[in-house]
Write a protein that binds this DNA or RNA. Structure first.
Lengths: 203, 203, 203, 203
DNA sequence: AATGAATGAGTTTTCATTCAT
DNA sequence: AATGAATGAAAACTCATTCAT
């Protein structure tokens, strides 16, 4: 008469959810398949039916992160909008992503593994970051070509710009600092844009 | 007649060395006292004679980091030198510390633990970071009082300045990027100083 | 195709049996889960699947003792039988329980733990003993009310009566003396009953 | 400059004292030479200089018990005093010994080991008990020869008499019950003597 | 005689994974 | 697909004992 137990796809989701919480709270090594299965209200063997190892379970979560990021961080240079407006948009997109609690948690999870160099997921987080830089680099390059910015090394500027944002909105949070509130977000955006304009804008 | 076996202080050092490597490679949870003792060529019980738990062993290493940092990151505002020169010095000190492989390794070790929120070493790394910011904030405040910089929130500027440096010289390395070479170091210093001057210098 | 290996309930029984022997031979502290699992022909982890700690395993055994005792030591005062007959019955019940080798072993196991004051099982053995005394006290009280025995403190008499029996049939055995044979049992019963009658019977 | 550390014989005593406490609190298996040496404020190696093993240390303590008992439990039948007076004396000696906290503690320590059948000290406690019984048996035999008591099996009576006393003053205490106070002691003595007289005194 | 340091063997317990049903 | 039960391997930590000084 065991009712109320999710089946199939529901079980899969329950496992992923439980695992995310568990990995976030205890890291990869600190988490146990036993606890995960209990939290998901599912037998341990069922976990193994869905994910063939702890590593694969972890990777599934990591890829959720990448997908989520890829979807939210898309933009292209356009002549139709001012440099100021476009820079503001880019900064906003970045910050929006980084001020969602769930995203930071996912990043923390993956970061631990990445730093531990367990090989798992290393490429993954690199990819996320490079997507980020590449996209921004392209934007700066085109702004340069369009004669709006005075730039010699677009990738350096891209890293500088993104770096400034992350310096306030990401790295501290990685170490447990609280997410930025609206006002702080706006200030960071404003200051980052100002910096680029002040240093590189063609007058 | 067992000769050639290091005694006492030497064993302690051997253990610390082995543990540093082990923690670096596998993180706190991933490392085992068994492996550490073997790498140090010492019995497991000896490790426990010197450090009464895995946690204490880890903390001993973590405190080495803090000491090392505290000693190398000291400076004060002076009217005798130009803003430019002083900013260059601060940036250089920061980067010098961050381009020593051993320091980055120690930071990585502590970072994992910090993110895992194992409570161990949480305060420690916070302290290191806050020392850093406080010292720089003070410097900016005094430069402001001295009428050289046009500033409203010194702490924000301090974080912006240190953040810029770390964006190139620390966070990527935390994720496994190679340490900066001399040329790159100089460029980062130059650009960070330029940014501050360009935004806040009183002309 | 591993056949012939007992499953489930059989394993549980095998573990309990092995543990009983082990605890009996070496006491709680002296026994190891390793040895127990080997004796039960079961992996150590299996032992832990069935009993979540050494302590719980021990308690399971201890409670078997209590149940066994509670079931065998029940009686009530009745006017339909003579004092002599009833006292004989009580003594016999007590002695019957104490001349079963398995019972003495269980008591020995629990006794060690009790004396070591490990808290485990302390209450348990107290309960067993108090059941014993309470039941007998009640009997004496009713015999007194019925005008058959001349008694001022029924609990003292109960302890005296049970104490006499145990002095021969329990305490020496606790220290390794052999169980009483039939003849000895009868003599102890006879003498204990005689003592009560001689001291308290209303003539 | 380490002062205040006892030397030589003092160290020996300190070790014995610490060990007694430790064995009492945790039993033989539960105690560790490490803790004992620390409690005695002495190095572990020093403990081994005085007692070549944990077992020997334990035995030294056990023999203290035997000596103490032998010295306090001596008496002989005499025609010069009444049966009543002599029985009272015997019971008193027994109870006096059993109402000294230290003695009970020593007995508890040895009992655990005895029950665990670690072989250590088995003979020892048997000896103590047999001394006890033998001495009392002799007394009863002579009282019988002297025509004062009507007895067929002096050893049985001796066990009955001593058993009655122990039933109140020893076994419960072995299990943690509080020592008897003066009034209780007197009552037990009185009732035990009464029992013997009532059953076996020649009128 | 005394000790600080060292150690091999052992302790309880947990884990990722497999297997029979 | 789902599960209860089983397990080998490894984890952190402790212990009685030895040895060089």
């Amino acid at each position: 008469m065991k009712r109320n137990r999710p089946l199939n796809e529901e079980k899969r989701k329950a496992i992923l959810k439980a695992a995310t919480v568990e990995f976030y709270e205890k890291g990869f090594e600190g988490s146990s398949m036993d606890t995960i299965s209990k939290k998901a209200n599912v037998s341990k063997a069922t976990v193994y039916n869905h994910f063939k190892s702890k590593e694969e379970l972890f990777l599934s979560i990591a890829y959720m992160l990448k997908d989520r990021f890829s979807q939210s961080f898309r933009f292209e240079y356009t002549k139709d909008k001012s440099i100021d407006e476009q820079l503001n948009n880019i900064a906003k997109k970045e910050i929006d992503f980084l001020t969602v609690k769930e995203n930071i948690e996912l990043i923390q999870i993956v970061t631990i593994v990445l730093i531990q160099k367990n090989e798992i997921g290393v490429k993954l987080l690199e990819e996320v970051n490079e997507d980020n830089i590449t996209m921004t680099t392209n934007w700066f390059e085109q702004a340069h070509k369009d004669g709006k910015l005075n730039i010699d090394d677009s990738e350096f500027i891209a890293r500088q710009f993104i770096g400034m944002i992350k310096a306030f909105a990401f790295y501290p949070q990685l170490y447990g600092a609280p997410l930025l509130d609206k006002k702080e977000q706006e200030r960071v955006i404003k200051k980052s844009v100002e910096m680029v304009k002040s240093l590189y804008l063609v007058k």
